[in-house]
């Protein structure tokens, strides 16, 4: 200890702390997590509707595929458009997953605490969070595998190409698990969003919550059922088509040698 007693003005740490604007980053992270989850969930609704076009027939699905390849806009197919869209979704997923990591149990002690707590509490919304945690964890792998494949093989989407991948390519277990994970995780996540931010509850918050939880189960069931039917349809086509593996679906006008002709109303009809 110096006895010379040179005293600098004492720094009032508390005062400085009060003047400093505290970081706005946690607010941004919280909002970004919600926004990324919301966008992903809405995207998954659209995705399911497009994919399930196979239930209306091979041609319907083919038209959807060609639409996303820009065929009806540019008169030619550009699969890189699909890659671009996949890249955006992948980016969103990475962002969402990175932010969700803040909420994951950080170690064995925390994981044990939340599991024990859930078992003891027997409380619906606490269980739902655990489901979200595990399905989210599963999607690190399942969603990444799927998105990476689509990113690098954007042209391999179509009634036969997709069905062959599902069945002969052996992807169906991944799609089945991914379907379960996404539909549970997404609809629980949307319900949680409404509770977290206090949306759509109306005047009577308790009645609103009951309505929203019913809506959540309705949405889960609807998309799960639609998803299972859709996957079933691809598996069925995949089995029927296993001996013509590699052959691509064509509608009438495409059997013309020289590839896809210019699009006209009459040529679009199926042969």
């Amino acid at each position: 200890m110096s006895a010379r007693g040179v005293t600098t003005a004492p720094v009032d740490a508390v005062r400085i702390d009060r003047c400093a604007r505290s970081s706005r980053v946690p607010a941004m992270l919280d909002m970004t997590q919600s926004l990324s989850g919301l966008l992903l969930a809405l995207f998954m609704w659209g995705h399911m509707l497009f994919v399930s076009s196979i239930l209306l027939g091979k041609e319907a699905m083919y038209v959807v595929t060609k639409t996303f390849e820009g065929y009806y806009l540019f008169g030619r197919s550009y699969p890189w458009i699909v890659s671009l869209a996949v890249a955006c979704v992948l980016l969103l997923l990475v962002l969402h997953a990175a932010l969700a990591l803040r909420k994951f149990p950080a170690d064995y002690r925390q994981h044990r605490a939340i599991v024990r707590h859930s078992i003891n509490l027997r409380h619906g919304d606490t269980w739902l969070w655990l489901v979200q945690l595990y399905t989210g964890f599963a999607m690190f792998f399942l969603a990444s595998a799927h998105l990476f494949f689509m990113l690098t093989h954007p042209a391999e989407i179509g009634p036969y190409a997709s069905s062959d991948r599902v069945w002969s390519g052996g992807w169906w277990p991944i799609y089945l698990l991914l379907l379960l994970a996404v539909e549970l995780h997404g609809s629980i996540g949307l319900y949680r969003l409404t509770m977290k931010w206090g949306w759509l509850q109306g005047r009577d918050a308790l009645a609103g919550r009951r309505r929203l939880i019913r809506a959540k189960w309705g949405i889960t069931l609807f998309f799960l059922l639609l998803g299972l039917l859709t996957l079933g349809a691809y598996i069925k086509i995949g089995i029927e088509h296993r001996d013509q593996l590699g052959e691509r679906y064509r509608i009438g006008w495409q059997s013309v040698p020289g590839g896809e002709p210019r699009l006209s109303a009459e040529s679009c009809r199926c042969g």
């Binding site: 009060r18 505290s22 970081s23 946690p26 607010a27 803040r102 509490l121 409380h123 919304d125 969070w129």
Partner: peptide, 18 residues
Amino acid sequence: YRLVGDDDGVFGCMTLLG
């Protein structure tokens, strides 16, 4: 915000609703 604007405060809530 200085008091609750972080993950130990309001942004830490995971809306489990217990």
